[in-house]
Computed example of a mutant assay.
Amino acid sequence: MKVLHVITGLAAGGAEQQLRVLLPRLRARCEVAVLTGRGVLADAIERDGLPVHRIGMRGNTDLRAVGRLARLMRGRRYDVVHTHLYRACVYGRLAARLANVPAIVATEHSIGHEHIEGRRLTRPVRALYLASELLGHATVAVSPTVAERLSLWGVPRSRIVVIPNGVDGAAFGFDAELRRRTRERLGLDPRAFVVGGIGRLEPGKRFDVLVEAVSALGGAVLLLAGTGSCEPRLRRLARDAGAEDRVIFAGESTDVPALLSAMDVLAAPSAEEAFGLAVVEALAAGLPVLYGACPAVEDLPPGAAPGARRVAPDRLAAELAELAARPPERLPPPEAVRCYDVRHQADRLESLYLRLLGAAPEEEKR
């Protein structure tokens, strides 16, 4: 079975990191097509021995990308095309239809009530999404929460398959020596209380709330991993609060375990999430987590993630102060981490591919 994964870009975001983690666990022969700039994860995927095809799309209305994708798909004769993120889903599903690809799958990583990947959910955006969804054969929701949102949009339940994001829990196990080296590399005091934030620096992540909370917490350091349009504003906010030297902008990184090792708590103040991958990774690393919204935790039975607590924005500073007053402590990975084992999720995806191709084992068909 030969599978082409089509994704909008390969910067170090949640969907992109998820694809990189998933690819080595799939038994199918996989290749990747990236619509826009390669990003730091393209090199990482190629180092893993997988081809990355650059489509060179220039903006949202570059319709020539459809032709380039379709030619790639026809020439390399893929059995499955699997798209990720809004633009790739719209263009990739159309190209796959034109190329007569037997099975077309899309994963919905980032749909919210009012936004999808930072875009406002206007009527045209929604109409284009629903029209392109009909060109595929199945849409994967990364959480039951996302499945419900898709259904409310008008995607038929019969076309939605829930397969959550996956995490390699062992890769995030705490390592004291890695913590020491990472703090040294970042110029962090070994004794500092380090609050972490991981994700795109965009409005929906509400990292401004986190900058304000840490600025009010004397001696604490904020380590922000990611890039985005809000970075200049966040830097000004830290400077105006007199905390410029206590907010570290680490930029994009493919080594999330090292960053988590340097932290004492992860804060994820987003008002809305589709899954909350950074939260699960932090739990795997033994960190306490304060979050604003996280379907990955909230869709599980109570008690599956005892180290994670939902916190209102106006309580974030007080909760961080309470944690800072206690000696840093690593927690055992909770049941939530085992629920999202990436090997299990890879098996479920391959079963979906086989079912769509009409080649599923008899027990899978039943």
Results as ranks from 00 to 15, higher is better:
F275Q: 10
P306W: 05
V289C: 14
Y291K: 04
Y291C: 06
A312V: 08
G286Q: 07
G303V: 02
G292A: 09
V337R: 04
A325Q: 14
P332Y: 03
A271I: 02
P332L: 09
P288N: 11
P269R: 08
A336T: 02
A285M: 06
E329Y: 04
V337N: 02
A293K: 11
D264K: 14
V289G: 08
A271R: 14
A325S: 11
D299F: 01
G276M: 13
L283H: 03
A282L: 00
P328V: 07
A293N: 13
A268S: 14
R310P: 00
A305F: 06
D314G: 10
R326P: 03
D299P: 00
A271Y: 04
G303W: 00
A317C: 13
R326Y: 02
P306C: 11
A336V: 01
G307Q: 09
R315W: 04
E329A: 15
C294T: 00
E335Y: 03
G276K: 08
A304H: 08
A312F: 07
R338N: 03
V279P: 00
A304F: 09
A308M: 12
L290M: 06
M263A: 14
A312W: 08
L323Q: 14
L277P: 09
G303H: 05
R315I: 01
A321Q: 12
P328M: 10
A285P: 01
D314H: 15
A268P: 03
E319A: 14
R326L: 12
E329L: 14
E273Y: 04
A274C: 11
G286S: 15
L287D: 01
V311L: 10
F275I: 06
E335N: 03
L300D: 03
P288L: 09
G307Y: 02
L323P: 07
C294I: 00
Y291F: 13
R330Y: 06
D314M: 12
A285R: 01
L320A: 10
C339E: 12
E272V: 05
R330P: 03
C339Q: 15
A296Q: 07
E273Q: 13
L323T: 15
V280G: 06
V311T: 15
V279N: 10
Y291V: 00
L300N: 04
P328Y: 02
P306L: 07
A324R: 13
R309I: 01
V337I: 02
P269Q: 13
A321T: 05
V265S: 08
A318Y: 09
E273I: 04
A274V: 03
L323Y: 12
S270V: 01
E335H: 05
A274N: 05
A304K: 06
P313T: 10
A268V: 05
E298T: 09
P327W: 09
M263P: 05
L323G: 13
A325E: 11
E322T: 13
E298V: 02
P301Y: 05
G286W: 06
A282Y: 00
P313C: 10
L283T: 03
A321G: 15
